[in-house]
Design a protein around this nucleic acid. Structure first.
Length: 554
RNA sequence: UGGCCUAUAGUAUAAUGGUAGUACGACAGAUUUUGGUUCUGUUUGUCUUGGUUCGAAUCCAGGUAGGCCAACCA
């Protein structure tokens, strides 16, 4: 029996619209501007728009809002499509606002003919000045009095390239004293003699967001046009234009954008991180971009689950990055292959082990009832982690210490007999004995131990590089911190361990596999790996209650 | 000295005039050949002041706090 999940406010609106017969089905759209890579905030919007259409049997268009040729590039178009597909969604149609340039132009002509738009020769400074302020009404200038014919001719000349950038704009004639600044005769078209990534040099006038977005929605018969809160003031203009143009009445709804602790979400800041080399690129595993998270090893299902868990509302929010990590772990725990890798080796010689090698069988994933097993070589000389031995153990320490016993995962119980030190007094080796009757799976020794350690046979170890990532910023709320965001960059967000020691099975595994390095965390192969050099990214750590315990004492 | 949006545990999010619930976190315990996983339990909340009502997180009014709006960006 599963409880009915409550609806968010947009689902309520949709169910009401459907119930009242306002629409037979719904159509949504995801409208990125191709001027950057998608990030986790876009993932929230993608999951919402596509998820709604799936839930209510409608469809979703992918529409590139490419009305500003100077910032947009084909490279971004391709990455956006790849990321959406990877997230697991399919768009009904791939559209571009630039597909509608001719139609949009005709809409503008229609407004001019209705006496609702005029060509203004003022400079941008003059226009800003005449606009007034939220508390001071704006004033209309003489250009607003031009005749329809004059406006028609001027607008045609603008299109034909007669004027230089900035010399003229087309404005809607709305209300210069509106308390909503967006209604004070907003600019509809501006002149830009720039090359567009799709239309080339065909156009030298380009519609503004407000004269492209709602009209594109309408052309595509989008029923629910969902955007973020900062577009609320645009809605009045959105509706005004649809009404005056007498076109399909799409409706705009707004929800709160996603913010996540210890990271930034604005394209401007992300671009800066890339350009100024604070990260290696858009797909740096520390980036909140979808491609960065993908490279880091986050699963698409985990991202979708996260978007589902954070909910949709109109309240400003700051989501704990821990929730994302929880979703990532939850997915990985079910699918990751368990492997043993020693990062910081301490040699152990098992003095009473006389065979060259013994293969022990260890399950690939204990969470899976039908798990496969692998054969792991065990020998006289092995490595364990330096952390897993202490000469003077604190209370509740389950690991190795002089005279103490632990189990080696999947193999035998050993006892530490002797500590070997170098001249400086550092522990360099442990001499241990093993209990032959304690073999994993048929232990008849009766010995109880608290700790189980991961280990690797020295002679059989495979080397690899490991890249461990931490949060990119040192403060929770980067956007609200008083200084420039770059002052808060975490200098230790990347730690590279050049040489770790892995069990041999890891050398045979591949890029689409996910691993849990036992007691270490989840890892995946990085694209920088070559045939003779394995490089792993730490996707996320395991929960570590012992580390927390140690921290509490100190 | 304008308009608009918002306010529920630490963080998010539900309850649509009728028992304030869920997830993450935190804490405690059980299980465990990963100090992982799993399981159990505990903890903490309706911004404020009035009003309407048998009954208010919900409706109304005032206040307070936070956010957004004056790009030829989207």
């Amino acid at each position: 029996m599963s409880e009915e999940k409550s609806l968010n406010f947009i689902e309520e609106i949709i169910e009401k619209d459907l119930a009242e017969g306002k629409h037979e089905t719904i159509t949504t759209r995801f409208p990125p501007e191709p001027n950057g890579y998608l990030h986790i905030g876009h993932a929230k919007s993608i999951c919402l728009n596509f998820g709604l259409a799936i839930k209510y049997g409608g469809s979703t268009n992918l529409r590139f809002d490419d009305t500003n040729p100077v910032t947009e590039e084909t490279e971004y178009v391709e990455s956006i499509k790849e990321d959406i597909k990877w997230l697991g969604f399919n768009w009904a149609n791939e559209f571009y606002a630039s597909d509608y340039f001719e139609q949009l132009y005709q809409f503008a002509v229609k407004l001019i003919n209705k006496g609702l738009a005029y060509v203004d020769d003022s400079t941008s400074e003059e226009i800003a000045q005449q606009k007034g302020s939220p508390t001071i009404p704006g004033v209309r200038n003489k250009f607003a009095d031009r005749t329809i014919d004059e406006n028609l001719q001027l607008f045609t000349e603008m299109r034909n390239g007669k004027y230089a950038d900035g010399k003229k704009v087309l404005r809607a004639k709305v209300d210069m004293s509106s308390p909503n600044m967006h209604m004070r005769d907003p600019i509809l078209y501006r002149i830009k003699h720039a090359h567009h990534h799709r239309t080339g040099d065909k156009w030298c006038i380009y519609p503004m967001y407000d004269f492209a977005h709602g009209q594109s929605d309408s052309i595509e018969k989008i029923t629910h046009s969902i955007c973020t809160l900062e577009f609320i003031p645009h809605r009045e203009l959105y509706n005004w234009l649809i009404e005056k143009l007498e076109i399909f009445p799409s409706h705009q709804y707004e929800f709160a954008r996603l913010n996540v602790t210890y990271t930034v979400m604005s394209k401007r800041k992300l671009l800066q991180l890339v350009n100024e080399k604070h990260v290696t690129g858009w797909d740096d595993p520390r980036m909140p971009t979808i491609c960065g998270m993908r490279r880091r090893g986050y699963g698409a299902a985990a991202l979708r689950d996260f978007c589902d868990k954070i909910g949709i509302a109109k309240r400003e929010n700051l989501i704990d990055i821990g929730l994302l990590e929880f979703c990532v772990r939850e997915e990985l725990n079910k699918i990751a292959l368990r492997r043993m890798v020693v990062f910081n080796p301490l040699k152990i010689t098992i003095t009473n082990f006389d065979k060259d090698v013994e293969f022990v069988s260890i399950e690939d994933n204990p969470e899976d009832e039908n798990t496969t097993h692998r054969q792991v070589p065990f020998s006289k000389e092995i490595y364990i982690e330096q952390d897993d031995f202490m000469e003077v153990p604190p209370k509740k320490y389950f690991r190795l210490f002089p005279g103490g016993k632990v189990r080696l995962k999947g193999a035998y119980i050993i006892q530490c007999d002797e500590v070997v030190k170098d001249n400086a007094g550092n522990v360099v080796e442990l001499k241990c004995t093993y209990f032959p009757e304690s073999k994993s799976g048929n232990d008849t020794s009766g010995i109880q131990v608290k700790g189980t350690l991961h280990w690797v046979s020295i002679a059989h170890a495979v080397n690899a590089e490991v890249r461990m990532y931490d949060r990119l910023f040192k403060v929770e709320n980067v956007a609200e911190a008083e200084r420039d965001f770059k002052d808060y960059i975490n200098p230790n967000s990347l730690e590279i361990i050049n040489k770790v020691y892995a069990e041999p099975a890891l050398a045979k595994d591949s890029f689409d596999q996910r691993f849990q390095f036992l007691r270490k965390g989840y890892f995946c192969l990085d694209k920088d790996s070559t045939t003779d050099k394995l490089i792993f990214n730490r996707t996320v750590t395991l929960k570590d209650t012992w580390a927390k315990e140690v921290k509490k004492v100190n």
